[in-house]
Design a protein around this nucleic acid. Structure first.
Lengths: 159, 159
DNA sequence: GCTTGCGTTCGAGCGCGCTCGAAGCCATAG
DNA sequence: CTATGGCTTCGAGCGCGCTCGAACGCAAGC
């Protein structure tokens, strides 16, 4: 109904500060090409996580990481790829528990592909719902900014 | 860059289950017209919150609620309007602290209107960033679903 | 040779937003 | 008369996702 119109309107105003998305796109595409084993600091920097968080993910069983002769973590290409994936899933709201389950499935072999696809599809739907919800809130917020009178309600339909 | 294209593509696929948004729109417009003082159960039902949460919001100073002769909460039109607003802000990720500050500003009178507008504008921008981020994650998830091979990485650019 | 800096492990702590349970009051139904 | 159900207050507890600090190790630089 009016929803699509709202969506379109909201979307049209989304063209400003491009930084976030461009940066993210670059991450998506470039990241893996910065080859060679990486240190925890480099990964943290690249993914905008703290080293603490990276260790936490490892403890949580989300990723396996090798060690060098000093016992320092060495992130190889696969670990990097997985962390990029994990980060994107986390950013879009997938709970740790689900990610742990997903990774367990990956490690369990190809038989689990269908279940993994189910999870991805469900997550996709969750993201879509969330976007719609946010779009609605965006419209409400913009409406309130435009018509601001000082009351707390949106006052749709009232004088 | 490719971002706008991604956005458009993602958005085009958002036309499915309309329920969430229609329901929400109705809330936005109809809610206040279901007049008369309401009980906590009715409000909880309408806003899809638990009575516990409503009491929590009151305790947090977000809304003032009267009592009937039995000491039961009575939500008047203004309380309802405010709660609708609060719920929408919460749903779009505004922290409790910010809402407490905002409500304090409202209660402080018209002099605070500029600061309130600043808050709303900042929140609007936050929502926009979040939508862009989610849109990107949505694209990544859809890509992975489409090309699913079993690796954890998006494998953009690789075989 | 010692300091500086970046890494390690481990377990505890925190901020957020609820969520719950206990104990009690009141009103209506049987 | 009593039992049921929905509300009240209060404070404690919880689930999530980090986040931090302590105590230590190694290696390069002055």
């Amino acid at each position: 109904m009016a929803t699509d119109e709202l969506m379109a309107r909201a979307l049209a105003m989304l063209g400003d500060d491009d930084e976030l998305s461009v940066e993210a796109i670059h991450r998506l595409t470039d990241a893996t090409s910065a080859d060679g084993p990486m240190t925890i600091a480099e990964i943290a920097d690249m993914l905008d996580l703290s080293p603490h968080t990276l260790r936490y993910y490892e403890r949580a069983g989300l990723v396996e990481v090798g060690r060098d002769s000093n016992g320092y973590r060495v992130y190889d290409a696969e670990a990097v790829r997985r962390l990029i994936f994990l980060t994107r899933m986390r950013l879009s709201g997938m709970p740790m528990r689900d990610l742990q389950h997903y990774i367990a499935l990956v490690d369990a072999g190809d038989d689990t592909v269908p279940e993994r696809l189910d999870m991805l599809i469900e997550h996709r739907d969750t993201i879509r719902r969330r976007i719609r919800e946010l779009t609605l809130s965006l419209a409400a917020t913009e409406y309130k900014i435009a018509t601001y009178g000082g009351t707390t309600g949106p006052d749709v339909g009232s004088a």
